[in-house]
């Protein structure tokens, strides 16, 4: 097994306007593995994916994919790099005006000059891999949430990318679809020799399939390790997260003045 690094993130900072979202992130992602990035809602996980994809530019630090610093690439080089990676969006982001078949064929038609019969075979192979070969004539509106996610998965592996990023692949799925998607990610990663980055807050499903986990909290990496290490972790944050506790290092209350001050209790009796 190769231990070559595919994605390297060094001292990465990013802020929207003046609000710091990511503060000094360091990560190393090895080829052929599934890496999970976990954290509460709004902790900057999705932003991290956008940084890797080059959709936004970091305030400082860098993201290197296959030895190229992403934000220093020109438009054409960036588009070349993006052809080798793909992203599965939260709710699939299937093109609603195209059929399932055309969705999967989209990148092949845009980026290659393959003849139509070859595209047809390739698309059916990809759809077969996610078990939806029979659904190729349907429109995205006719699919259930789990099926749409599977079609999106087929679409994201259409050009055999080296890196696939999944933004909340488990969000809003029933338990069966959830484990179907989980298993598909594992199987496809191994079969195609690609690298997967899964951004999620679903601890239980992801710990079953991933090779390495990063926890992000408040813009910094709170903990990282293999799933086994994470389960044994004594870090209060990881403990709270893995065991889904309501209060802990991640507070239940948004920062505010004291309750009494807000309700004018102090002033009226002063």
């Amino acid at each position: 097994m190769t231990t070559e690094t595919l994605v390297e993130i060094k001292d990465l900072n990013f802020s929207y306007d003046k609000r710091a979202v990511l503060k000094g992130i360091n990560m190393t992602m090895v080829r052929g593995k599934i890496i999970a990035v976990m954290g509460g809602s709004g902790c900057g996980k999705t932003t991290l994916l956008r940084l890797i994809g080059g959709a936004v530019t970091p305030s400082s630090g860098y993201v290197k994919v296959a030895d190229q610093v992403v934000h220093e690439l020109g438009r054409d080089e960036l588009f070349l790099l993006r052809r080798k990676m793909s992203m599965l969006f939260q709710f699939g982001a299937l093109f609603t005006d195209l059929s399932v078949f055309d969705n999967v064929a989209f990148q092949m038609r845009e980026h290659t000059d393959l003849p139509e019969p070859v595209i047809r075979d390739l698309v059916l192979m990809k759809l077969h891999a996610v078990g939806l070969r029979g659904a190729h004539n349907l429109m995205p509106a006719e699919l259930s949430g789990g099926m749409a996610r599977r079609v999106a998965l087929a679409r994201s592996i259409a050009l055999d990318p080296m890196l696939v990023m999944y933004d909340e692949p488990f969000a809003g799925l029933d338990p069966i679809s959830l484990s179907v998607i989980g298993n598909l990610i594992r199987r496809l990663t191994d079969a195609l020799g690609m690298t997967s980055i899964v951004v999620t807050h679903d601890v239980h499903e992801s710990l079953k399939i991933v090779d390495y986990v990063y926890f992000i909290s408040d813009g910094v990496i709170a903990a990282h390790g293999t799933p086994a290490e994470v389960r044994r972790s004594v870090s209060p944050f990881v403990h709270q997260f893995v065991h889904s506790e309501a209060d802990g290092p991640v507070p239940f209350h948004y920062p505010a003045a004291t309750y009494a001050t807000d309700l004018n209790l102090e002033s009226s009796f002063a």
């Binding site: 994809g53 070349l80 992203m87 709710f91 982001a93 609603t96 005006d97 989209f106 980026h111």
Partner: peptide, 25 residues
């Protein structure tokens, strides 16, 4: 409405990540 909905459902972002320019396509 169509382009707006494509934006809401991240179809435009997805297209950009597939190295296809949404303005052109």
């Amino acid at each position: 409405a169509e382009i707006g909905l494509m934006k809401v459902t991240e179809q435009l972002d997805a297209m950009g990540m597939m190295a296809v320019d949404p303005i052109a396509r």
